[in-house]
Amino acid sequence: MRVKFCGTASLADMRCATDAGCDALGFIMGVTHQSSDFITPTEAAKMIRHLPPFIEPVAVTHLQETEDLITLVRDSHCTTLQIQNTIKPSEMDVIRDALPYVTILKAVHVTDESAIKMGKHYEPYADALILDTRTAEKLGGTGIPHDWDISAAIVANSAVPVILAGGLTPENVSEAIRKVRPYGVDVHTGVKKNGVRNPERARAFAREARNALPDPGSRG
């Protein structure tokens, strides 16, 4: 089970996540809605210089204009782009042509069953989908779970990997994984304590996520 920690805003945040054994780190940049832990592309680039090998840096953004998205990735030195806002699918091809080395994740907000159709809308253009929760004010980082039955339906019928986000915590991530069966999970506020990314909660989240399903190589 792949694990991404989002909202990395300091070297301490980064060390906390890498010590927990994360596979990817999200850097929130270019926000247009309420968000916490957002930074500039320059700040992200400085942190990424200290990122250990084999951990993916992800540019998480609300921006929608193609050129803005391309510039954000280049300036931040991220190798994955997570688009949280709406965008024409054809524009994702433009980004891919400009940045052939970049993996593109497209967020699908699971508000109701229309998310199933939205996932199919973006699926041919994205390398993976990320299922998140939104409110009128926030495009992510809400701390609110959504309907995992809908998420499970998207996963079951998706031709690309699907990452589950939205209100995940060390306490509920195992149940979420068993129900949804995603490729990976993404956490932000769920590993905080007193408003700060917490080492104990980060380790617990990664441990619970990786132990949620049986090891495919095990016998029994």
Rank of each mutant, 00 (worst) to 15 (best):
D93F: 03
D132R: 05
V185A: 06
L81T: 11
D19G: 12
T133C: 08
G220Q: 04
A204F: 00
N198V: 01
P53A: 07
K106F: 02
Y122A: 13
V108R: 11
A204S: 14
G217I: 06
N211Y: 02
L131C: 01
T66Y: 07
G166M: 08
A206I: 15
I177Q: 08
R74D: 03
P161L: 10
T71L: 11
C6Q: 04
K88L: 14
L105H: 13
N198E: 05
T71R: 15
Y122G: 11
G21F: 10
A20L: 06
L105F: 14
S174C: 07
T80M: 13
P100I: 00
I28P: 02
K193R: 14
P57L: 04
I70R: 02
L69E: 01
G220H: 07
T8Y: 00
A9W: 00
T189V: 05
Q82E: 15
T86P: 12
T111L: 12
Y183K: 13
D127R: 05
G140W: 00
N211I: 00
T18L: 03
G166L: 07
D13C: 09
I163E: 03
G217K: 12
P89N: 04
D93H: 11
M118Y: 04
F54A: 11
I95F: 03
C6I: 11
F54D: 12
C78W: 01
R207V: 05
G195Q: 06
I28A: 02
V102H: 02
